[in-house]
Amino acid sequence: MSTLSTAQSLRTTPEGILWEPSDRWVRGRKGAVTVVDSHRPVLVWEPGAAVPLYAFPREEVREDLLRPARNPPAGTHTGSLVFYDLAVDGELLENAAWTFPAEDLAGHIAFEWSGRTGTGLDHWYEEEEEIFVHPRDPHKRVDALVSSRHVQVEIDGTVVADTHRPVLVFETGLPVRYYIPREDVRLDLFSPTEHSTGCPYKGTAAYWSWNGEAGIPPNVLWSYPDPLPAVAAVKNLLAFYNEAVDITVDGEPQERPETVFNATLRPGTGR
Protein backbone atom coordinates (compact mmCIF):
# COMPACT_ATOMS: atom_id res chain seq x y z
CA MET A 1 0.00 0.00 0.00
CA SER A 2 1.20 3.51 -0.78
CA THR A 3 2.25 5.62 2.19
CA LEU A 4 -0.04 8.33 0.79
CA SER A 5 -3.38 6.73 1.58
CA THR A 6 -6.54 8.78 1.47
CA ALA A 7 -7.17 8.29 5.18
CA GLN A 8 -7.40 11.67 6.90
CA SER A 9 -4.69 11.70 9.56
CA LEU A 10 -1.73 13.93 10.27
CA ARG A 11 1.71 12.39 9.88
CA THR A 12 5.14 13.75 10.81
CA THR A 13 8.39 13.38 8.90
CA PRO A 14 11.82 13.18 10.59
CA GLU A 15 12.35 16.78 9.40
CA GLY A 16 9.36 17.93 11.47
CA ILE A 17 7.00 18.42 8.53
CA LEU A 18 3.34 17.66 9.20
CA TRP A 19 1.32 16.36 6.26
CA GLU A 20 -1.90 14.62 5.36
CA PRO A 21 -3.65 13.61 2.13
CA SER A 22 -6.63 15.62 0.93
CA ASP A 23 -9.62 14.41 -1.07
CA ARG A 24 -10.18 17.83 -2.69
CA TRP A 25 -9.75 18.40 -6.42
CA VAL A 26 -7.17 21.19 -6.60
CA ARG A 27 -6.03 23.17 -9.62
CA GLY A 28 -3.39 25.87 -9.84
CA ARG A 29 -2.98 28.28 -12.73
CA LYS A 30 -0.60 30.92 -13.92
CA GLY A 31 -2.79 33.25 -15.93
CA ALA A 32 -4.83 31.02 -18.22
CA VAL A 33 -2.39 28.09 -18.08
CA THR A 34 -3.24 25.19 -15.76
CA VAL A 35 0.02 24.10 -14.13
CA VAL A 36 -1.45 21.70 -11.54
CA ASP A 37 -4.57 19.55 -11.84
CA SER A 38 -4.69 17.15 -8.91
CA HIS A 39 -7.14 14.72 -7.34
CA ARG A 40 -4.47 13.56 -4.87
CA PRO A 41 -3.01 16.69 -3.25
CA VAL A 42 -1.20 16.59 0.05
CA LEU A 43 -1.50 19.31 2.69
CA VAL A 44 1.87 20.22 4.22
CA TRP A 45 2.64 22.24 7.37
CA GLU A 46 6.28 23.26 7.61
CA PRO A 47 7.76 23.71 11.12
CA GLY A 48 6.71 27.06 12.58
CA ALA A 49 4.31 27.83 9.72
CA ALA A 50 0.86 29.05 10.72
CA VAL A 51 -0.82 27.97 7.47
CA PRO A 52 -0.52 24.93 5.22
CA LEU A 53 0.46 24.61 1.59
CA TYR A 54 -0.19 21.94 -1.03
CA ALA A 55 2.21 19.45 -2.58
CA PHE A 56 1.21 17.41 -5.63
CA PRO A 57 2.20 14.10 -7.25
CA ARG A 58 4.55 14.79 -10.15
CA GLU A 59 2.22 13.12 -12.62
CA GLU A 60 -0.43 15.77 -11.85
CA VAL A 61 1.98 18.67 -12.49
CA ARG A 62 2.98 20.20 -15.86
CA GLU A 63 6.63 19.30 -15.42
CA ASP A 64 7.29 20.43 -18.98
CA LEU A 65 6.91 24.00 -17.66
CA LEU A 66 9.53 23.53 -14.93
CA ARG A 67 13.23 24.29 -15.26
CA PRO A 68 16.04 23.64 -12.76
CA ALA A 69 16.31 26.84 -10.71
CA ARG A 70 19.02 29.23 -11.90
CA ASN A 71 19.34 30.89 -8.48
CA PRO A 72 17.99 28.51 -5.84
CA PRO A 73 17.47 30.23 -2.49
CA ALA A 74 19.10 29.10 0.72
CA GLY A 75 17.21 28.51 3.94
CA THR A 76 13.70 28.70 2.51
CA HIS A 77 11.26 25.84 3.06
CA THR A 78 12.16 22.85 5.16
CA GLY A 79 15.24 21.13 3.80
CA SER A 80 14.23 21.70 0.20
CA LEU A 81 16.19 19.44 -2.13
CA VAL A 82 15.42 20.91 -5.53
CA PHE A 83 13.97 24.23 -6.66
CA TYR A 84 12.40 24.90 -10.04
CA ASP A 85 11.76 27.98 -12.13
CA LEU A 86 8.40 28.08 -13.90
CA ALA A 87 8.26 29.08 -17.58
CA VAL A 88 4.78 30.18 -18.72
CA ASP A 89 3.87 32.27 -21.77
CA GLY A 90 7.38 33.66 -22.12
CA GLU A 91 7.65 34.58 -18.43
CA LEU A 92 10.11 32.87 -16.08
CA LEU A 93 9.14 32.75 -12.40
CA GLU A 94 12.18 31.96 -10.32
CA ASN A 95 11.91 29.38 -7.53
CA ALA A 96 8.18 28.95 -8.04
CA ALA A 97 8.26 25.25 -7.16
CA TRP A 98 10.29 22.88 -5.02
CA THR A 99 10.50 19.38 -3.55
CA PHE A 100 10.92 18.27 0.06
CA PRO A 101 13.64 15.82 1.17
CA ALA A 102 11.16 13.88 3.33
CA GLU A 103 10.82 10.28 2.13
CA ASP A 104 7.06 10.44 2.79
CA LEU A 105 6.77 13.29 0.27
CA ALA A 106 9.04 11.84 -2.40
CA GLY A 107 7.60 12.36 -5.84
CA HIS A 108 5.67 15.49 -4.82
CA ILE A 109 6.14 19.11 -5.89
CA ALA A 110 4.99 22.21 -3.99
CA PHE A 111 4.31 25.67 -5.44
CA GLU A 112 4.41 29.26 -4.25
CA TRP A 113 1.12 31.23 -4.20
CA SER A 114 1.39 34.75 -5.60
CA GLY A 115 -1.31 35.97 -3.22
CA ARG A 116 0.91 35.10 -0.29
CA THR A 117 4.50 35.58 -1.47
CA GLY A 118 4.11 37.75 -4.57
CA THR A 119 5.36 35.02 -6.88
CA GLY A 120 4.17 31.68 -8.16
CA LEU A 121 0.71 30.60 -9.34
CA ASP A 122 -1.96 33.30 -9.22
CA HIS A 123 -5.23 31.33 -9.38
CA TRP A 124 -6.10 28.36 -7.19
CA TYR A 125 -9.29 26.30 -7.03
CA GLU A 126 -10.66 23.70 -4.64
CA GLU A 127 -13.36 21.93 -6.64
CA GLU A 128 -15.03 24.86 -8.50
CA GLU A 129 -14.39 27.52 -5.85
CA GLU A 130 -11.43 29.87 -6.17
CA ILE A 131 -9.35 30.19 -3.02
CA PHE A 132 -6.83 32.84 -2.10
CA VAL A 133 -3.53 33.34 -0.27
CA HIS A 134 -3.13 29.76 1.01
CA PRO A 135 -5.07 26.48 1.25
CA ARG A 136 -7.83 26.25 3.81
CA ASP A 137 -6.76 24.38 6.92
CA PRO A 138 -9.15 21.47 7.60
CA HIS A 139 -8.27 21.70 11.28
CA LYS A 140 -9.38 25.33 11.53
CA ARG A 141 -12.88 26.74 12.03
CA VAL A 142 -14.24 30.17 11.20
CA ASP A 143 -17.72 30.87 12.62
CA ALA A 144 -19.63 34.15 12.17
CA LEU A 145 -22.34 34.40 14.85
CA VAL A 146 -24.98 37.12 15.16
CA SER A 147 -24.95 38.49 18.72
CA SER A 148 -26.68 41.02 20.98
CA ARG A 149 -23.61 41.83 23.09
CA HIS A 150 -22.88 45.46 23.80
CA VAL A 151 -19.59 46.29 22.06
CA GLN A 152 -17.84 49.64 22.33
CA VAL A 153 -14.61 50.61 20.60
CA GLU A 154 -12.46 53.55 21.70
CA ILE A 155 -9.40 55.20 20.23
CA ASP A 156 -7.52 57.61 22.46
CA GLY A 157 -10.63 58.04 24.64
CA THR A 158 -13.01 58.67 21.71
CA VAL A 159 -15.85 56.20 21.23
CA VAL A 160 -15.66 55.27 17.55
CA ALA A 161 -18.18 52.41 17.60
CA ASP A 162 -21.09 51.43 19.86
CA THR A 163 -23.45 48.58 19.03
CA HIS A 164 -25.82 45.98 20.47
CA ARG A 165 -25.94 44.02 17.20
CA PRO A 166 -22.45 42.82 16.36
CA VAL A 167 -21.48 39.70 14.48
CA LEU A 168 -18.73 37.83 16.31
CA VAL A 169 -16.20 35.93 14.23
CA PHE A 170 -14.49 33.05 16.00
CA GLU A 171 -11.43 31.91 14.06
CA THR A 172 -9.11 29.22 15.37
CA GLY A 173 -5.87 30.73 16.61
CA LEU A 174 -7.07 34.36 16.56
CA PRO A 175 -8.94 36.56 19.03
CA VAL A 176 -12.66 37.15 18.57
CA ARG A 177 -13.27 39.83 15.96
CA TYR A 178 -16.27 42.10 16.48
CA TYR A 179 -17.98 43.09 13.22
CA ILE A 180 -20.17 46.16 13.65
CA PRO A 181 -22.90 47.68 11.44
CA ARG A 182 -21.75 50.81 9.65
CA GLU A 183 -24.52 52.86 11.26
CA ASP A 184 -22.91 52.12 14.62
CA VAL A 185 -19.40 53.21 13.61
CA ARG A 186 -18.08 56.80 13.45
CA LEU A 187 -16.82 56.22 9.92
CA ASP A 188 -16.44 59.99 9.50
CA LEU A 189 -13.36 59.68 11.74
CA PHE A 190 -11.64 57.37 9.24
CA SER A 191 -10.48 57.54 5.63
CA PRO A 192 -10.55 54.69 3.11
CA THR A 193 -7.19 53.43 1.87
CA GLU A 194 -6.10 51.51 -1.20
CA HIS A 195 -4.96 48.61 0.95
CA SER A 196 -6.63 45.22 0.58
CA THR A 197 -6.00 41.68 1.75
CA GLY A 198 -7.30 38.27 0.77
CA CYS A 199 -8.39 35.50 3.13
CA PRO A 200 -9.25 31.94 2.04
CA TYR A 201 -11.98 31.80 4.68
CA LYS A 202 -13.59 35.23 4.36
CA GLY A 203 -12.73 36.83 1.01
CA THR A 204 -11.18 40.20 0.08
CA ALA A 205 -11.13 43.02 2.63
CA ALA A 206 -11.14 46.81 2.15
CA TYR A 207 -9.53 49.08 4.77
CA TRP A 208 -9.77 52.47 6.52
CA SER A 209 -7.24 54.42 8.56
CA TRP A 210 -7.80 56.62 11.62
CA ASN A 211 -7.75 60.35 10.91
CA GLY A 212 -6.49 61.32 14.34
CA GLU A 213 -3.00 61.51 15.78
CA ALA A 214 -3.18 58.90 18.52
CA GLY A 215 -0.36 56.70 17.22
CA ILE A 216 -2.81 54.27 15.66
CA PRO A 217 -1.41 52.11 12.84
CA PRO A 218 -2.85 52.54 9.36
CA ASN A 219 -5.53 50.19 8.05
CA VAL A 220 -6.87 49.52 11.54
CA LEU A 221 -10.46 49.13 10.32
CA TRP A 222 -11.69 46.74 7.63
CA SER A 223 -14.75 45.28 5.95
CA TYR A 224 -15.66 42.46 3.57
CA PRO A 225 -18.00 43.91 0.91
CA ASP A 226 -18.47 40.53 -0.73
CA PRO A 227 -17.57 37.83 1.80
CA LEU A 228 -17.48 34.12 1.10
CA PRO A 229 -20.75 32.26 1.83
CA ALA A 230 -19.50 30.72 5.08
CA VAL A 231 -19.25 34.19 6.68
CA ALA A 232 -22.00 35.98 4.76
CA ALA A 233 -23.22 37.55 8.01
CA VAL A 234 -20.26 39.98 8.04
CA LYS A 235 -21.12 41.54 4.66
CA ASN A 236 -20.34 45.30 4.78
CA LEU A 237 -19.87 45.23 8.56
CA LEU A 238 -16.75 46.82 10.05
CA ALA A 239 -14.11 45.34 12.33
CA PHE A 240 -11.15 46.76 14.23
CA TYR A 241 -7.84 45.18 15.11
CA ASN A 242 -8.24 44.32 18.81
CA GLU A 243 -4.48 44.61 19.02
CA ALA A 244 -4.55 48.38 18.37
CA VAL A 245 -7.79 49.77 19.87
CA ASP A 246 -9.67 49.57 23.17
CA ILE A 247 -12.71 47.28 23.09
CA THR A 248 -15.29 46.88 25.85
CA VAL A 249 -17.80 44.02 25.74
CA ASP A 250 -20.86 44.10 28.03
CA GLY A 251 -19.09 46.64 30.21
CA GLU A 252 -15.89 44.60 30.54
CA PRO A 253 -12.71 46.03 28.99
CA GLN A 254 -10.91 43.50 26.81
CA GLU A 255 -7.17 43.00 26.97
CA ARG A 256 -5.32 43.78 23.78
CA PRO A 257 -4.18 40.39 22.46
CA GLU A 258 -0.74 39.41 21.25
CA THR A 259 -1.07 37.88 17.77
CA VAL A 260 0.87 37.37 14.56
CA PHE A 261 -0.35 40.84 13.51
CA ASN A 262 1.31 42.78 16.33
CA ALA A 263 4.63 43.08 14.51
CA THR A 264 3.03 44.89 11.57
CA LEU A 265 0.44 46.88 13.54
CA ARG A 266 2.72 49.76 14.44
CA PRO A 267 2.29 53.43 13.60
CA GLY A 268 3.94 54.16 10.30
CA THR A 269 3.67 50.61 9.00
CA GLY A 270 1.16 49.31 6.50
CA ARG A 271 -0.75 46.08 6.08
Results as ranks from 00 to 15, higher is better:
Thr117Glu: 14
Gly107Tyr: 03
Phe100Asn: 00
Gly118Arg: 09
Gly118Asp: 15
Glu127Phe: 03
Phe111Ile: 06
Leu93Thr: 12
Glu129Ala: 15
Trp98Ser: 02
Leu92Asp: 03
Leu92Trp: 04
Glu130Gly: 13
Asp122Tyr: 15
Asp122Gln: 08
Trp113Ser: 05
Trp113Glu: 03
Ala110Asp: 01
Thr117Gly: 07
Arg116Phe: 13
Val133Pro: 00
Ala106Asp: 05
Leu92Val: 13
Asp104Phe: 00
Gly107Phe: 06
Ala96Pro: 02
Glu129Lys: 14
Glu128Phe: 09
Glu126Tyr: 15
Trp124Gln: 14
Phe100Cys: 01
Glu112Ile: 01
Ala106Lys: 03
Ile131Arg: 10
Pro101Gln: 07
Leu105Ala: 04
Glu103Gln: 12
Leu92Ala: 03
Phe132Thr: 11
Glu126Ile: 10
His123Asp: 12
Phe100Arg: 00
His134Val: 11
Glu91Tyr: 06
Thr99Trp: 04
Ala106Asn: 02
Gly115Ile: 01
Val133Thr: 13
Glu126His: 15
Glu127Arg: 08
Phe132Met: 01
Gly115Met: 09
Leu92His: 05
Ala102Asn: 05
Val133Gln: 03
Asp122Trp: 15
Val133Tyr: 01
His123Met: 14
Ala110Glu: 00
His134Ile: 10
Gly120Ser: 13
Ala102Lys: 02
Asn95His: 08
Asp122Ile: 15
Ser114Glu: 09
Glu126Asp: 15
Ala110Arg: 00
Glu129Asp: 14
Tyr125Lys: 11
Gly118Lys: 08
Leu93Cys: 02
Phe111Leu: 06
Leu121Gln: 07
Gly118Thr: 12
